[in-house]
Nucleic acid binder design. Structure first.
Lengths: 210, 210
DNA sequence: GTCTATATCTCGATAGAC
DNA sequence: GTCTATCGAGATATAGAC
């Protein structure tokens, strides 16, 4: 999922700043002045390059949402056994979240404000890709249950657990960093720990032990 | 954690409306007009009762944050074995999230926008309560490890998993409901399923099986 | 306590110089 | 392409009648 067109240096900086500002404050809460400041450019330039706030927002959202969608798809691509698929999914998904930090709130805001826009976008991506991630995941889980690799579980609930426990280090970052002030300093280490801990926990929690 | 003072009928309605509005749109995105409309009162009355937006926001935030803090504390109160403590925690915490739906976003917004305010509030609550939830949790986990009830795990990572996997049904609600349109209709059932699935998964994932 | 009217301010957007 | 100045919409906040 590349962008529609190539960005100049300046456009890129505005886009990156906008991504952070929208993610932190939502669409309504975001300030063009803050975006301009963070990008180190004049406020008028934001309009020059991206027309208006709505347009800039859509640019950011489409980009990040497509990335998210294809991240989920590729994370589910692997054709190995359950152990490999779980490990791969956790690695790919957490790496994505690490790169596009804060996108969760962006999405949540989008859904509250313009659910129909987002649903259209989702359907469009599903059509392009021929399948929805949650459906693919559910199918895989069922296969592994049939093969006896994992115990009998609800695929949807399992999906929620997986997404939530990957996400929360990022979503809850500000809360968590109160208790662990070294979170920022040792960020890479914590993220790595997260991957290992989660894999071990979920593998043991799901595997068939009859 | 009761409020500072008793609310009149009108104040209560404004407060409830404000809670929802702030939760959905964040502090900056929230509109006093929308709060007044939802409460069924004139916009000027919001100022009459709560002085200004900042003050109203703090009132809402303090209330929900205290509730959250004491919910975590009481969820950790039980003195039974690991199995009982896990079951109790999941039940109490998910019931809380179900009642104060949408508060996750409120908190996240607060943390992104005014982390220092929130840290002060947190320290204050820790002082009142003599201990931080994350510390209490870590101690309990260590005890259960010493007793051999659970395997050797990182208490902090375990805490993140627990919070995240409880939270995500609520945080991710709008995304999840695209794939499962019956989520709203069968909400109670899904929440109940969540409790059972999570307990089983985490218990198996953490218990000592040597 | 409640409402109308209005003052004040913030922010998105544009015009026009360079 | 970039900046300054400014307009106008919309939101917060207040004054004052009832």
């Amino acid at each position: 999922m590349a962008r529609e067109r190539d960005y100049t240096e300046t456009e890129e900086q505005i886009f990156e700043a906008a991504l952070k500002e929208f993610a932190h404050n939502g669409k309504k809460g975001a300030r063009l002045q803050a975006i301009a400041d963070a990008a180190g450019v004049n406020k008028a330039l934001v309009h020059y390059y991206f027309r208006n706030k709505q347009h800039l927002y859509e640019e950011v959202f489409d980009y990040i949402y497509s990335r998210f969608f294809y991240c989920l798809c590729s994370a589910l691509q692997g054709s190995g056994n359950f152990r490999e698929m779980l490990k791969s999914f956790i690695n790919v998904y957490i790496d994505f979240l690490k790169t596009y930090n804060g996108f969760s709130l962006l999405m949540r805001n989008a859904l509250d404000l313009e659910p129909e826009v987002l649903q259209d976008k989702y359907q469009e991506l599903v059509r392009e890709n021929k399948a929805a991630p949650s459906t693919v995941f559910a199918q895989k889980i069922k296969e592994f249950m049939d093969k006896g690799e994992i115990r009998k579980v609800d695929p949807f609930q399992t999906f929620i657990t997986l997404l939530g426990s990957c996400n929360y280090l990022f979503i809850g970052y500000p809360v968590l960093s109160i208790a662990h002030p070294d979170l920022e300093e040792n960020w890479d280490w914590y993220v790595q720990q997260r991957k290992e801990h989660l894999f071990e926990l979920l593998y043991r929690g799901l595997k068939n032990d009859n």
